[in-house]
Design a protein around this nucleic acid. Structure first.
Lengths: 343, 343
DNA sequence: TTGTAGGCGTTATCAA
DNA sequence: TTGATAACGCCTACAA
């Protein structure tokens, strides 16, 4: 392995001068710079990151922790972040975590290893933050989630208003004449986002003079096709009158639709379905999925802006709400057939 | 930051002994082990990976380079690999690369940084291997791709037979009576896989007494919904008689179907579509996608087995072909309406 | 502008 | 079974 010493020897300069050139510092003569760069090129030298990071205490990098690898919304957000950071001098260290990993613990490890100057969490469980976030002292932004009732001096958040969005989804179903509405969502004990969306649903029910009976109309699922497929089966069993379903992600919605079709229901003629997230897939699916679209570009942009405001401008953390958008799609129908059949 | 020295001081033992305990070695007295572990626990000490890797020359880890973050097939394979490696003493270092990154260059960096004892490439461009793979000297397996005409002493491959699979896809379309068959695939200059599948298509055409006219019936696209959507539009323009389409990934197939539906074609009544990969989405889509299913479990299992055979048993590299499976779905129809309309 | 030397936290070698 | 001590490759005072 060729090291900085080899480059020093071959170029005729000292290690320090080589190091200076490598780090683009300006206290080097043009001659030295040129010669050293030649040798670096010739030997195809790449500095050893481990040695570098062992010594340095601030790598000019920012870390991204993504919870859930096949989350299309997160994929879009990461892409956006990558483009933004790509234009700066900073490097990006993206780490993909399992859906039930402890992102805060992982963040601690990342900090030790890479010494990032800031962190972006895509998804995250407030419980984990309450438990371990105090160990982290660099500026952070929690994206698509917020931590209520707990304030940290270095933690901002950027999120869609999940309560309002959940309400909006169910409102759309009420507006189409539905009153027997089922809901497919995450485990509200663990997924704070699901809990908030459910609160929104309850609000909508109230506004329409009804009470949401959770035992009957809420069914728990993981955020995957087949888990939603099975959940939809269970929901149908315990709440057969259902004429409309709000699924808390587009993936869930698609799983539910397949389940319903396999039970010979037509979407939206027999049963209406609305999803959440507004991923690309929603507009490519048949029928086009009605959904609540999270503005992934805005989420990404604001997260990065807020992070840098904390880092460079030493701003206090803020908790920002990003607007969402109702996408009508083709999967919501006005209520009719089903009721007639039952009467 | 608490270091090994602190632990040494607090426990009353030397740095070396602490290091031994940390690395689970057995030349340590039970007393020392116990005491040191207590202190480690108490101080919540985690060794510094950078220092560790700087010093060590073989981390017990194996690296995985995944090309294309939102590739569902790869996601499934990674998951499978994770489960397999999870049962061993080895750690996994997964790196996600952009679709047009140079995976071999990245692999070199990974080797420097993490000193893995073996590498798994999910996807990869043979060109990159020809160019730079000679720099890499640890056992590697290229998954879902193979490198023809170039033999490296440390590179195995496990792949679906892309030629046969491509042929099989088009055979299915011929079998349903189609003769005007369009193809949506990657850039055959860059994507070796696409090239092979296209070769398979050509074979099928020949067997059916026809010649595949590439200029007319092949349209290039990226492996994304909207790129395939646009490509389908172009294909329709230059080859309006088309009655069936083979898309070289399920994602492409779905993009194509949306484009066709937007042009008021019904699938499969007017135009048939078959995809490739056999991802979960294929069975959740409407209509259920006909597709060529790659056996991701077998691909994963064999890759890992072959890698370890190279590492532990010093076996020579092998190039293995994994069977594929035709999934009929609901998106292929026998030819009828379209021809009638045209006559 | 350049060079020397010390140290980052760990592991490995060698003696004890 | 333990403990000094010398690396690993790089960065950074400090000196020249």
């Amino acid at each position: 392995m060729v090291t900085i010493k080899d480059i020093a020897r071959e170029s005729g300069y000292s290690v320090s001068t080589v190091s200076r050139v490598l780090n683009h510092r300006n206290d080097v003569s043009p001659d030295a710079k040129k010669k050293i760069e030649e040798v670096v090129e010739q030997y195809n030298f790449v500095p050893n990151n481990n040695a570098k990071r062992l010594k340095q205490n601030n790598s000019r990098s920012i870390g991204v922790l993504v919870k859930g690898i096949s989350n299309m919304l997160f994929a879009s957000i990461v892409e956006e972040i990558q483009q933004m950071i790509g234009r700066t001098e900073y490097a990006l260290a993206v780490t993909y975590l399992d859906e039930d990993a402890d992102e805060v613990e992982e963040a601690e490890l990342l900090c030790r290893d890479r010494k990032p100057i800031g962190l972006l969490f895509l998804g995250g469980n407030p419980e984990n933050f309450k438990k371990g976030f105090s160990h982290i002292d660099i500026p952070c932004v929690l994206v698509t989630n917020c931590v209520d009732h707990v304030e940290f001096a270095n933690l901002s958040s950027v999120t869609t208003d999940n309560i309002a969005a959940g309400k909006s989804a169910v409102d759309a179903l009420f507006a189409a004449g539905h009153r027997d509405i089922g809901i497919l969502g995450g485990d509200i004990e663990k997924s704070y986002t699901s809990l908030q969306r459910l609160l929104g649903c309850k609000e909508s029910f109230m506004e329409h003079g009804m009470v949401l009976k959770q035992e009957t109309c809420y069914e728990k699922a993981r955020f995957s096709y087949d888990s939603a497929y099975r959940a939809m089966g269970r929901l149908m069993k315990k709440y057969p009158q259902v004429t409309a379903v709000f699924a808390m992600s587009d993936v869930m919605a698609i799983g539910a639709i397949r389940a319903l079709r396999d039970m010979n229901y037509r979407i939206p003629e027999d049963i209406s379905v609305i999803g959440f997230d507004g991923t690309e897939l929603a507009e490519y699916y048949n029928p086009k999925l009605a959904t609540i679209k999270q503005q992934y570009k805005t989420l990404a942009t604001r997260s990065v802006e807020i992070l840098f405001a904390q880092i460079d401008l030493k701003r206090d953390p803020i908790h920002e709400i990003v607007p969402f958008e109702f996408v009508s799609g083709e999967s919501i129908g006005r209520i009719n057939h089903k009721e007639e059949q039952l009467l």
